[in-house]
Design a protein around this nucleic acid. Structure first.
Lengths: 228, 228
DNA sequence: TTTGCATGTCACAGAATCGTCATAATCGCA
DNA sequence: TGCGATTATGACGATTCTGTGACATGCAAA
């Protein structure tokens, strides 16, 4: 699962409280105290959901929300608004801004968690798009669990190896350049050499030995998982 | 592929660095040091993407961006902003101006390249317009995959051979001179003899043996892929 | 702290690929 | 038909790319 939630709130007490509850529920979290900064975070980190305080220094929550919905990169991220009593609830509820739900302070953490769960469920990608279990001959890969089996035998992969395998498998038949792989598996900000990919490909091949050949080297281009 | 990128930056060092990296990745490039001039260039040359420095002499990056987005001819060109640390990142991130992404200096060239690739991917024309699988009798060529089949049989081509075949096939029926082929397949910077093309044509003919005859030699001119 | 694992980097060897050249074959035209 | 120009071919050395093992670092568990 491992959803990431960005919390934007200027009151440090509330911020930490919310963060603490989210993390103890197993969510990954990001914080921001500033309306402007949080947009930046939203774009680069692509959280699965945003918990947004209405009253913020600088750019207020309404603005943040509107801006996000206008920007293609962030338009799909659901937003839960936090408001103090008496704030302009009506406009939020009107959802002119694209907020998906809202809570009036003071709220109970449990309620927040429930709302989050509900909103996430609503925004869950439909089953056929969701990464289900991937298969390749006798090998099964479970994206949600970081588990790989060949036949009955469990295969122990590191996170990097797993992500590498997953990306190749999800793009079966298509060549991925080393840079593309660095981008997708290691992330944008990684500043390493393309050679690193080779090493991990090697380790991956060793571990999925029976199918080592099915990771094809496309010389001068990159790697590709063999179709069927 | 062969996308054109306009880089607008007043610092010549950074400008040349960026240009160099872009070209070595195979992009065509245009430069501009001036906010006003670059608008003109953007309109006439229709680049596929703009890398725009925030701080510019004359008209600054924000203005350029806003102006571009107002003008129908340039509104669809994605923009990646470059900013020095501490500059008004917030307004950019607010995307009031329509920037599609941004980078804070100092940035790594690799990261810029990755962002460019990501933004271009987002703005990619829909699939039905993109060059799909090419066919010639029993032969299929998948441009994105570097894959060639004759019937069911996969054909192993090197990247150079593949690009050569692709260029000929995409221009079926038209003669290409050796110089044209050198430019398109080997790249402008290649400094070699035209005879090199002959050798690769030969290797290509061998590998696609059943259709060897379909690569016609046009004496004194170049080569041509026979119209079905 | 020590230990073990995951990771990224490096250097080197082997293999694939490339460009060039010499020579043979072919073509177009007088 | 014969000649010069052009192209095809095969070989070879040079270059580039990948696979591999070894190693340094960092992190986290013990």
């Amino acid at each position: 699962m491992d959803r990431t939630i960005l919390v934007v709130e200027d009151d440090p007490d509330i911020l930490n409280l919310v963060i603490w509850h989210l993390e103890s529920e197993g969510y990954r979290t990001l914080k921001s105290k500033d309306g402007r900064k949080c947009l930046e975070t939203a774009i680069h980190e692509k959280p699965d959901l945003l918990v947004l305080d209405l009253m913020l220094p600088g750019m207020d929550g309404l603005e943040v929300c509107k801006t996000m919905k206008r920007n293609q990169a962030t338009a799909d991220i659901p937003v839960i608004m936090l408001t103090a009593k008496g704030e302009e609830v009506d406009r939020i509820v009107g959802f002119e801004l694209g907020a998906d739900d809202y809570l009036v302070k003071p709220f109970s953490p449990r309620e927040l968690l429930l709302r989050i769960r509900a909103v996430l469920r609503r925004h869950e990608p439909p089953a056929q798009q969701r990464p289900g279990v991937l298969r390749h001959r006798e090998m099964t890969v479970e994206p949600e669990n970081y588990k790989v089996h060949i036949g009955r035998e469990p295969i122990r992969l590191t996170v990097t190896e797993f992500n590498l395998l997953l990306d190749l498998l999800q793009n079966k038949g298509r060549v991925r350049s080393r840079d593309q792989l660095l981008d997708r598996v290691w992330g944008y900000q990684f500043e390493g050499y393309a050679r690193t990919v080779d090493t991990h490909i090697r380790r991956l091949r060793q571990k999925i030995a029976p199918y080592a050949e099915d990771i094809e080297t496309v010389r001068g281009v990159g790697y590709r998982f063999k179709e069927t």
